[in-house]
Structures are given as C-alpha cells and as structure tokens.
Design a protein around this nucleic acid. Structure first.
Lengths: 211, 211
DNA sequence: CCTACCGATCGGTAGG
DNA sequence: CCTACCGATCGGTAGG
C-alpha cells in the first residue's frame, strides 16, 4: 500500500484539521475528568460524556476507541499536572521541599476536582484487571522512589537522621497526604486540609531531623 | 389494634420462618459485600448479586427495598466488625493501644476483602448525594473523636507530650493507616502492610512521647 | 464525526 | 391479613 505517501492536499487545511481534532480531544478529556471525579469511572456513561461534550457516542468513540481508552486519556492528562508538580518540587533544595507541602495543599484546595478524580480512580483501580491498574501501580512506585531519593539525599547532606528507612518513610508520607485528602474530600467542613498538612509538615520535620 | 398480641400459632414455625429470613439476609449481605469490594457499588448489578445468592432480583429487593438499601445493609454489617475492633482497642490501657496496631494490620492481611470494601465504598461516597455519604462522614468523625480522646487521656496520664493537638493528630493517624492500606491493596508485592504499620507505630511512639 | 441501530443488561415493579 | 418469595416484564440505558 502507498501508506508512506503524503495526502495530496497536505498543506494548511490538513494540519488545521488535526489541530482542531486535538483541541476537541483535549476539551472532551477535561469534561470526562470532571464527570469521573463526581460519579467515578463506573458511574459515568459514555452517553453522559457525549451529551455534555455536544457529540454523539460514536463520535466520542472515534477519538478514544472505547470507554477504557477515554479513562487512560484522562489519567495521562492528569499525570501531566502531577509531573509539573514533581518537577517543581525536585527543582527545590531538599530542605525546602518539606516547607512546600502546605503550599501545594493550599493550591489543591481550589482544585477539589483534581483531588477527587485521583481518589476515586485509584479506588476503582485496585483490582489487577481494572483498566487503570497498571498505571496507578507504576505511579505509586515512582512517587515512593522520588520521595525516598529525596530522603536519601537529605541524609547524605546531614539534614535527616541516618537511622530511618527511606522507602518505608516515603510510603508513610504519601499515605498520610492521601489519607488526609480523602478525609477532607468526604467532610470539608470537619477537616481543614491546609491546616492538617501544615501540622503534618511540622510532625514530619521533627521526625526527619530527629529533634 | 391488637398488635401486642402474639399470633395464635406463635410457637415454632412462625419464629422459625423469621429466623430463616434473617439468616438469608445475612448470607446475601456477605455475598454483596464481597462483590462490592471487588467491583464497587456502582460496578455491581443487582442481577449479579441475585445470581450469586441463588435468588431472583425481586426476591433480593424484597429483603432490601432497593440497591441503596442493600448498600446500607452491607455498610452496617461492616460496622459491626469495626465496632468490635473499637471495643477491643478501648478495652486496653492507652499505652497498649499503640502496640496493638501492627497486630490489627496482621489480622487484616488475611481479610483483604474487608479492607478493600472500605476503601472502595468511601471513594464512591465522597459526593454528598451518595447513598453511603452520611454514614461515612459520621464514621470518620467518630473515629477521629475516639482517637483524639485516647490521645487526651494519654496526655493527662503524662504518657504523651502536652504540646500536641489531639484532633489534628487523630486525623493524621487515621489518614496514614488508610493511605498505607490503599497502597498495599493496589500493589501488595511492593508494599508489606504489616512492616509498614509496624514502622509507623514506631514513628508514632516517638512522635507522641516526644523522645 | 453522523444516523441508525445491535445484543445484553440496568434498577425496579407488576400480579399472584 | 401476614411472610417470603416467584416468573415475567416494565421503560430506559449500557458499551459498541
């Protein structure tokens, strides 16, 4: 087949069409993310997403193949935000990273939807055959590795006490932040997420320095 | 009305029929709990539960009214276990309660299903209009209150340092245990829940005593 | 990306 | 008049 050939009209309009499709995709992903956050992946139908996006169900499936494809697109999109966060954190001195936690909590406070999306999708991905399972397993392993590396470099710099297991502490830190987030999402009137993370940052500072 | 009267044939058969119904209900609740744990509330159909229980859907609904009624029955049943746990913990001296945490993790290790059920249902109950929302809000408030009370009494006994906010610490402790559980459920090969909780109990002991 | 559909399954209810 | 269900089917919706 002549698959390697460029289409004869591959100048302006073709690129514009692809660009338009990409923007439409992006738009649908944001709509789907909002609905997954509120009702979960299982609680959201393709028809719901299509209606909100002003598209037919077959049109929706043209972009994402099937419902799991839409989920993976949402997860990947959400990961771009997380990566930006990780890069920002890794750009700081290890000693400053701890102090940055409440700032991120403060930022997330106004993006409830992102936090909710994450909590809901992880719970729907616990089973090995869930569409997002492999992704979240890899994501948590990477998160633990990054935090453990930070702890190790802080130990080498003498900022953190040596008798502390970096891997175990990394799991514990991520667990606490996740758990506080869940309590806040469930009951925002009873749990002040910024104050809770600030208090935990102080706990953690004492714990890490051993003071 | 003569509602206070016993039925004229209120010897064996009548009581036996009610008792049989109660046992059938209990049996169905356990089946539904297992399915909710694996596929979530939204991912489980009444037809799935009915088929596994060897009952028709109308038969199922006769017992629970509607799907949300089944969920609430599962949650209440799960709470009986939690209450037993709480009573066991509250029966100990405050100083021993911390040491009991790894033992409970060890016990839960063989009851993955219960842990999974809890994680999945909480995530499906974040929205205020979710059927289990009110229940989980109340449950977390009660849990925080119990842990905070334990901390306060340990402070009065001089076992725990005074400069520590009992409510904030309670939220933090529950958050860490929940979060570790989620990481373990997602990736049991990478996260050893017993070791993680043991390590956290040590962290917590240093934190509480201020040593 | 559309209209026009499919096999099946959804939560819930009818009469008996 | 009660209980504990049954087989059949309701109007709509699921993913594709």
């Amino acid at each position: 087949m002549s698959r390697a050939d460029q289409p004869p009209h591959g100048d302006g309009p073709a690129t514009g069409r692809r660009e338009r499709a990409r923007l439409r995709r992006e738009e649908i992903i944001l709509i789907a993310a909002g609905m997954f956050a509120e009702r979960g992946y299982r609680g959201t139908s393709l028809a719901d997403v299509a209606a909100r996006a002003g598209i037919s169900e077959p049109g929706l499936l043209h972009h994402f193949g099937n419902k799991a494809g839409l989920l993976l697109a949402v997860i990947e999109r959400r990961d771009l935000d997380s990566e930006a966060f990780a890069m920002e954190l890794l750009g700081m001195e290890p000693a400053d990273r701890l102090r940055a936690l409440p700032e991120f909590a403060r930022r997330n406070r106004h993006r409830t939807e992102l936090a909710k999306l994450f909590t809901v999708l992880v719970a729907e991905s616990l089973e090995p055959d869930a569409p997002g399972h492999g992704h979240f397993v890899a994501r948590y392993r990477a998160m633990r590795a990054i935090v453990a590396d930070t702890i190790r470099s802080a130990q080498r710099a003498g900022l953190t006490r040596a008798g502390l297991d970096p891997e175990a502490k990394a799991a514990e830190i991520i667990a606490t932040l996740d758990g506080l987030q869940t309590q806040w999402l469930l009951d925002p009137e009873a749990v002040d997420i910024v104050a809770a993370v600030e208090a935990y940052a102080r706990t953690l500072e004492r714990d890490l320095t051993g003071s």
